[in-house]
Design a protein around this nucleic acid. Structure first.
Lengths: 191, 191, 191, 191
DNA sequence: GATGAATGAGCGTTCATTCAT
DNA sequence: CATGAATGAACGCTCATTCAT
């Protein structure tokens, strides 16, 4: 097994265990076992459990962005872009429930809060696609004149809850439901 | 100190510590210390830490419901009732950030998932105010014709995210902002 | 077993293991085992291994001082006082080889160096018996006009080496040998 | 880099790290890193860490002896020889504090005790310069009629303590102080 | 020979839970 | 009933040593 493969294996196994059992339910020894490596080996790839988790998060971002942005056309109208991003994200979560569960664990933890705070303060200058979209929407008066962060919460809060319920098996999201749900989100934020 | 008082004290202290430091950051010894009782005593009132946490959650519900339902008039139109419930809940979270932090910890944990699952299957028969409201809204064709659970996610997902950002200090919700935010939520689910 | 007894037991066991195997050769688990308590129990009495070791050192000082000072008469001439202290100390080490071995381990370790440094800087004002004796000796022109610390090294360095060799079994110190050795030490520092 | 060079490099690096951080503070990986070789390579030159340390000690002796013996004239009187050896040794320690620190670590450890014991039993037959000097001194009735080992402790114990305090910065030994200190040592052992 | 990734026993420490007082 | 000292399994992490390349 190559160095890259082993790193990948550890990442993937950690993802699975943490997604299923949470951070405390994922001892390094268990991750090692299920990864088929010795405990010490993990520490060759990740300085500490904290670092492993943080890297796992970065990995996650690296996986999601390309998928969600595939076919994204920044020149299209705000509404179309919103639909593209939201349905893509929703589909990603549906297709990758482990990623979703991990992200939930992550965001609800010291790491996540720190990360959120970081983003909040650092994004002032640069911008991610979502932020950009919301700012466009507001300035073009297509979206409500509310703080970006609230627009963001309205949209993400909703679809994350919905994704969660789908993954827990409380609803089954098919294409029409995804469409109509996104529509509802749009209704919430559009002017 | 009476039996009830002692129980209350333990519940309250647990709430504070868990809200601030999370489940792992709240050892029984610390809870005991700050509650002014012995560790063993906690086990007279709660079979285990798990039970304590679950009870804490029930306690929480018992506190929130009365506050949120205060002045609630089931005979009023769906829209008015929605506004009442959502703004009340939002205000409750704003005024009781510890409760909010605890609930977030709780929902994002094995307990929370189990609890959600329980509720989902048991609520089939009986009904809570929110459920009832959403069902009314849908059947009266005031709300979108989507599964109740999705309507619910649209509304709650949003306002929970917003409450979180307020508590983390990323936004400051004043009365107008609460009003306009609720309005946006309504836009999302109204037909 | 009383609380005091248990603390005493842990102290004594630690002393024995550390004296024989050094700090690294004395894992908490081994100390616990031989003390007849669980690992966790040690942590009720000592915050950490570092603290345990530091306390052990204080304990040691508390044991040695009274023994060495027994019958010490500050009004006697310098030479007599020197003989009293040095032979007492030598005898103490001979009778308590574990204490001696521990002290050697301690002094040769981060703890010990820090402790030495502390003493060096703090003793400027107050004074221990030995310091006082050496200062008296120098000012009365009975001892050589060298820095106190050098006088101290001349005396202690010698008798510690001698005690070590006795404990290792390379020599057998009897009363006459102790007497003559002390005499030699005295010759080294007397004017 | 030649085989000899590599060995030398490992020895020197180990010395520095161990002198500064002690045995536990000197992991093989760190030694390898700073030596510019791979961990595995060290094991080609030294069977184990224990062996490395023991060899390091031998190396040390090999370095000190020539320096201390430089200009040593066995035909000179005992006193002159004593002065030569003791001041040379003291100067060596002052000029090579790393060597001194290492030797202290070494002597205060299982290795050191074993080594001392070895020497004690093996030196019975053959003899080192110091031993020889002390035996000469005693038989010529220039030194006190005490066991050689005690004479040795009187001298070495003192100057090692003094060297330590100089290296720790508690005193500053200049030429006169070295002279007077050696004189004091001599007073201790001379008849 | 040299390499350094892999190993896993072992360490110091924590904390939910028990039970003698 | 209340207490809190005692327990020991479990955790994150280190590092001397091995061995495939």
């Amino acid at each position: 097994m190559s160095k890259q493969d082993k790193r990948e294996e550890i990442i993937q196994t950690s993802l699975e265990i943490i997604a299923e059992h949470g951070f405390h339910g994922a001892p390094m020894a268990m991750i090692a076992d299920l990864s088929g490596v010795a405990v010490g080996t993990i520490y060759r790839y990740f300085e500490s459990k904290d670092v492993l988790i943080t890297e796992l998060y970065k990995e996650m971002e690296g996986r999601i962005y390309p998928v969600v942005l595939k076919g994204y056309a920044p020149e299209k109208p705000v509404r179309a872009r919103f639909f593209h991003l939201i349905t893509s994200l929703l589909r990603y979560f549906i297709n990758n429930p482990l990623d979703f569960r991990f992200l939930e664990q992550f965001h609800n933890s010291p790491y996540g809060v720190a990360c959120r705070r970081d983003k909040f303060f650092k994004t002032k200058g640069r911008s991610d696609v979502f932020h950009e979209l919301f700012e466009d929407g507001i300035s073009q008066q297509v979206m409500k004149d509310l703080p970006v962060i609230i627009i963001s919460d309205l949209a993400f809060g909703s679809i994350i809850s919905i994704a969660r319920d789908h993954i827990l098996g409380f609803i089954v999201l098919d294409d029409t439901l995804i469409e109509r749900t996104t529509e509802a989100c749009w209704d919430g934020i559009k002017r």
